[in-house]
Structure formats: C-alpha cells, structure tokens
C-alpha cells in the first residue's frame, strides 16, 4: 500500500497521495491569489484603502507563529526519520500550540473587524477586498484546524515505541501538510498586508 520511508535517492517524501492533495490545494490557492490580484488591479485605490484597515501586527504575529511551528515540525520529522525519539512529542506539542495561538490571533483580528462593522458580503472595491479577506483567511484557517487535528494524531504516537514504516510515512505526510499550510499563509500575508 504505502512505500516504506527509506533514504534512497529519488524517493518521494511521505506518500505519493499527499502530493496529489498538496499540489491540488496549492493550485486552488494559486487561483485564489490570481483573482485577488485581478480585483486589486481593477478596483485600485478603493481596494488598497480597505487593505490598509488590516492591522499589520496581527498578520506579522501569525506569520512568526506558523514559521516557528514549521521549524518544530521540521526538526521532529527529521528526528523521526533518523530514528531519534528525543523530544519528538514536545516538538509536536510546541507546533500544535503555535497553531492554536494562530487561530486565537485570527479570532481576535476577525472580532475587531466585525466590531468595526466589516463583514463578508459587501460590494464596491472596499467590500470586495473584505470578501476576499474573510473567505481566503477563513478557508486557510480551516486548513490550520485540519493541521492541528493531524498534529494531535502525531502527538498521540507512543514515543517509547520505535516507529514502523507506516508511522514514518504518516509523520512525514503530516509534516508536508503542515508546511503547505504555513507556505500558503506566507503568501496570503504578503498579499493582504504587504501589497498595499
């Protein structure tokens, strides 16, 4: 069923199927980014005025959180593949904590925007920007939730037991998914908070 995780040259990290998912999902987000760029170019200053209402510190904090969690995951996956069980569980717990903080910051940011009367469903350049903002960051946040569930599954693996090949594939595939979630956020961050 699944290829054993070996270190032969030319092997595919994780399993082939996870790449179907990752490349598919990244294509979808590429489409998202293109539509955003198109509307931004069309609506001009109305659009960028709405972007300026987004608070850069929230976005920056979330970027740091996800990059940190990705570092934890990368170290943990590396150790699992090397057969080194030291602090693997703590690293995954750290990554999960960063993921949950990311969702907390997102909730604060959304709450503040809602309090200021911003929501999805507006029209005109400004409304359009917030439509993109809430839909894209909402869909991304759902990815973070799924990623947190995956991390919880990895935390549940018994650190005292040596990893089976299937578990190594699971860990590596989970790591790949988490890095994708991180990568997509970095692009979303740049689009919403920096191109204005």
């Amino acid at each position: 069923m699944t290829a054993p995780a070996t270190t032969d040259t030319g092997r595919i990290p994780g399993e082939v199927g996870i790449w179907v998912f990752v490349l598919g999902d990244m294509s979808v987000f590429a489409l998202f980014f293109s539509t955003f760029a198109y509307s931004q170019a069309r609506d001009g200053s109305d659009f960028t005025r709405a972007q300026k209402q987004l608070e850069l510190p929230f976005g920056l904090l979330n970027t740091v959180l996800l990059l940190t969690s990705s570092l934890f995951v990368a170290i943990a996956v590396h150790r699992v593949l090397q057969g080194d069980p030291r602090r693997v569980r703590q690293l995954f717990v750290g990554a999960l904590a960063c993921g949950l903080c990311f969702l907390g910051v997102k909730a604060l940011e959304w709450g503040q925007l809602f309090a200021d009367g911003r929501s999805a469903g507006g029209t005109g350049g400004e409304g359009e920007m917030f439509n993109y903002y809430f839909m894209f960051t909402g869909i991304h946040a759902l990815h973070v939730v799924i990623g947190c569930i995956v991390l919880s599954r990895l935390i549940a693996l018994d650190p005292a037991q040596p990893r089976t090949d299937n578990q190594k594939v699971l860990v590596e595939s989970g790591g790949i998914f988490w890095h994708m979630v991180d990568l997509l956020w970095v692009v979303l961050f740049a689009l919403f908070y920096l191109t204005r």
């Binding site: 199927g17 179907v20 998912f21 999902d25 509307s39 469903g121 359009e128 993109y132």
Partner: peptide, 23 residues
C-alpha cells in the same frame, strides 16, 4: 486524497447567499 480534496472544494459554493457580486 483526491476525494477528500474534492469534498473540501465543493464547499466553495456554500457561501453564495452572502454575495451578490465577486468570485
């Protein structure tokens, strides 16, 4: 993976009640 990805993408249609313009 393909099926779970598809199931997830279908949800993009689920928000149409909120929008009269846009993607």
């Amino acid at each position: 993976y393909y099926n779970l990805w598809t199931a997830f993408l279908y949800s993009a249609g689920g928000f149409v009640v909120m929008f009269k313009t846009g993607v």
